[in-house]
Design a protein around this nucleic acid. Structure first.
Length: 671
DNA sequence: ATTAGGG
DNA sequence: CCCTAAT
């Protein structure tokens, strides 16, 4: 619903489904308009139709939803604001403070509560786990939020309690810097790749074969909460770089749950995705480091700052817009009347493909019968208590095997990058400990979870899913989650959602509940929904933690979701490289000579050899220079402000060429 | 591919 | 710096 409103906010009539409400150039506009209006009518009709059908669904279901949801939380008591804009990232156990954010990818599969009773394995210990799970869940059966915590606990605890294994990068797990990978861990000149995995569940025979993509099962029987789910964390890649290189410091930690088909829970619907899924064009290794995929060495840094978040969300929105455009491939020709459409749309499609990879790999692919069957059973059993289920079931589209049971899947989540300094004489053991500490210190923080619909973050926590537009009508890739890990800064779990705080009370803080996984919550809550949507978490990495680990090899092989190509790092941008004074001087010189506006010439004249600076950069820089120069010095902010003399030249050149351009234009106008 | 301009 | 529109 949210996105609908947004889309309606634009000029729907004139340009339905247009990505953006931008102004057309005055010229040619009228010419295009007729054609466009005709198309617009068609599209509008289509949109209206779909909207009205959706509305019907809502009208019949919303009341029940509200009723169903009311037991969950006091709507009035819950604050809407749930996002933490100022994550604290500096609490790593390491002295190194240049944490950029490491990435943890996870495949989290949600398990409806009832599923815990389903066991397909004879494995005794697995069964024990199931028992434990069942027990723990029964205790809290009616609190969906608690299940959420359980999942989070399960995912988090192994990280905290288990020791990582370290292995050199030759193993399956991932290279981060392909070009630098040839160095062994011991002699790392610049980067080493360290895999961190959790020791397998005791009953797992595959523990030692991490490099063969054997999933390590993490889980704990000790704690009832944690036992609720089994996380699989199989790999974590970590780039370690000497501090000397801090300027480029980028360490990536990848917690990759992985899956080779060797593990999925017999009693949970598990959808696992290969590590290589995301970057299947990366041959045998998956390069998960954010910096690998960027051009010019840009890093995807999750610094947790507002800007980054804003950037990410912006991009997600845009990606969503792109997707929406892409949803009408056969209608693309309708836009053909616009000349620019062809190339631009193609470019958009390319971008879209890049960003959409994530989406695609999140689309639950119920490739396996057993798993999904279990899912359906649970959903329905759960739904039985809920009137919503029945009504929705009747309305749900008949969808083969998956029925209403495709759950939300969190493929991965990002946590702040971690930079680790390790003395050369460090032992493997100490390295493991360091990595472990670093990771756990991050994980121990909290997860900030955002729910995205069509790329838009749904802010209102009190909305029912239907109200939020999350319903069976939603496209599988329309639902997304962002999980951002925030380092623990104080004892209070900042990642807790307001309602969680409300229900648990500030004084009752289960240490294991600090990490909040929204996804299981959604899965369970939505179990009654005929939701087909698979949740997606945007990140450049695709998996890591797979709960409900099991040693059942069959279950895992089931769901190899193979993405088309390596995912573009979402939100990645070029590494910021402030102009040096020398560069500014060059630029000023060039502009003094050539004038502003012909940036290609300026580039060729002064920055020909500087690959880093494009003419667009120069243009931008000039713009900024003019702005800087035009404001009083007291108001100037920033580290490297060019000397006043240079700024004066900027203003002079700007003034000169402005006049010059004006004269020229005037003359041209006369001619 | 360039240029311009908003964010 | 990014993104988009216009050329």
């Amino acid at each position: 619903m949210v996105f609908r409103k947004k889309s309606e906010g634009g000029s729907v009539v004139r340009r339905p489904r247009k990505r953006r409400d931008t102004t057309l150039a005055p010229v040619k506009r009228s010419a295009r308009l007729k054609k466009k209006q005709m198309y617009a009518l068609d599209l509008l009709a289509t949109v209206a139709e779909s909207l009205s059908s959706d509305e019907d669904d809502y009208s019949t279901e919303s009341d029940q939803d509200v009723a169903a949801a009311s037991h969950n939380s006091d709507r009035a008591a819950v604050k809407a604001e749930q996002f933490h804009e100022a994550p604290q990232l500096n609490s790593t156990a390491l002295e190194n403070d240049c944490c950029r954010g490491y990435t943890v990818g996870c495949d989290c599969i949600c398990a409806p509560l009832g599923e815990t009773s389903i066991r397909k394995t004879e494995d005794l210990s697995t069964q024990n786990v199931a028992d434990t799970v069942e027990g723990s869940l029964i205790e809290k059966a009616d609190a969906d939020n608690l299940l959420t915590q359980n999942v989070a606990d399960a995912a988090a605890e192994p990280l905290i309690e288990k020791k990582p294994d370290v292995f050199a990068e030759g193993s399956l797990v991932s290279c981060t810097k392909p070009s630098l990978l040839d160095c062994g861990l011991g002699t790392i000149p610049e980067y080493g790749t360290i895999g961190v995995c959790h020791p397998c569940f005791p009953t797992s025979a595959d523990v030692k074969q991490v490099h063969q993509a054997t999933p390590a099962i993490i889980g704990s029987l000790v704690d009832g909460n944690a036992a609720a789910l089994h996380g699989l964390v199989d790999t974590m890649d970590l780039d370690i770089k000497p501090s000397v290189l801090n300027s480029e410091s980028s360490s990536g930690v990848h917690l990759g749950g992985h899956d080779n088909g060797h593990n999925s829970s017999p009693f949970y619907p598990v959808q696992v995705q290969h590590a290589a899924d995301i970057d299947n064009d990366e041959k045998s290794t998956r390069c998960v480091h954010p910096s690998t995929s960027g051009s010019k060495g840009g890093h995807l840094s999750y610094k947790g700052d507002c800007r980054t978040r804003r950037l990410l969300s912006t991009r997600m929105r845009k990606a969503a817009r792109n997707k929406m455009c892409g949803e009408l491939p056969n209608k693309g020709s309708k836009f053909g009347g616009k000349k620019i459409s062809a190339t631009r749309r193609r470019a958009q499609m390319q971008r879209m493909l890049k960003t959409k990879k994530v989406v695609e790999c999140y689309s639950a692919q119920p490739s396996d019968e057993g798993v999904l069957t279990e899912t359906s059973g649970t959903s329905c059993s759960r739904g039985g208590q809920d009137p919503t289920c029945a009504s929705e079931s009747s309305q749900r589209k008949p969808c083969a095997s998956e029925g209403c049971n495709v759950k939300f899947i969190i493929k991965s989540f990002n946590i702040p990058e971690l930079s680790i300094e390790v003395p050369e004489n460090a032992t493997v053991g100490s390295l493991k400990r360091i990595v472990m500490d670093a990771v756990t210190s991050k994980i121990e923080g909290s997860l900030s979870v955002s729910v995205l619909l069509q790329g838009e973050i749904i802010q209102d926590d009190n909305k029912t899913l239907h109200q939020a537009g999350i319903c069976h009508g939603a496209k599988p890739d329309s639902i997304g989650f962002t999980l951002e890990c925030e380092a623990k800064q104080d004892s209070r779990p900042s990642g807790l959602a307001p309602e969680e705080m409300d229900s648990a009370g500030p004084s009752v803080v289960n240490p294991l509940s600090k990490i909040k996984f929204e996804q299981p919550f959604i899965s369970c809550t939505l179990g009654d929904y005929p939701c087909e949507g698979a949740a997606q978490v945007r990140s450049e990495i695709c998996q890591a933690i797979v709960p409900y680990g099991t040693s059942n090899p069959d279950a895992l092989a089931i769901v190899p979701v193979v993405p088309r190509s390596r995912q573009r790092d979402f939100g990645q941008r070029r590494k910021r490289r402030p102009f040096s004074v020398a560069e500014v001087e060059l630029l000023v010189e060039a502009v003094e000579l050539l004038g502003f506006g012909r940036w290609k010439n300026v580039k060729n004249h002064a920055f020909r050899d500087n690959e880093e600076r494009t003419y667009v950069d120069l243009k931008d820089k000039w713009k900024n220079l003019v702005h800087t120069a035009s404001i009083p010095p007291q108001l100037r902010r920033g580290r490297a402000i060019p000397p006043q003399g240079l700024l004066d030249r900027v203003l002079a050149a700007q003034a000169y060429w402005t006049v010059h351009h004006a004269k020229r234009d005037e003359e041209e106008g006369r001619d």
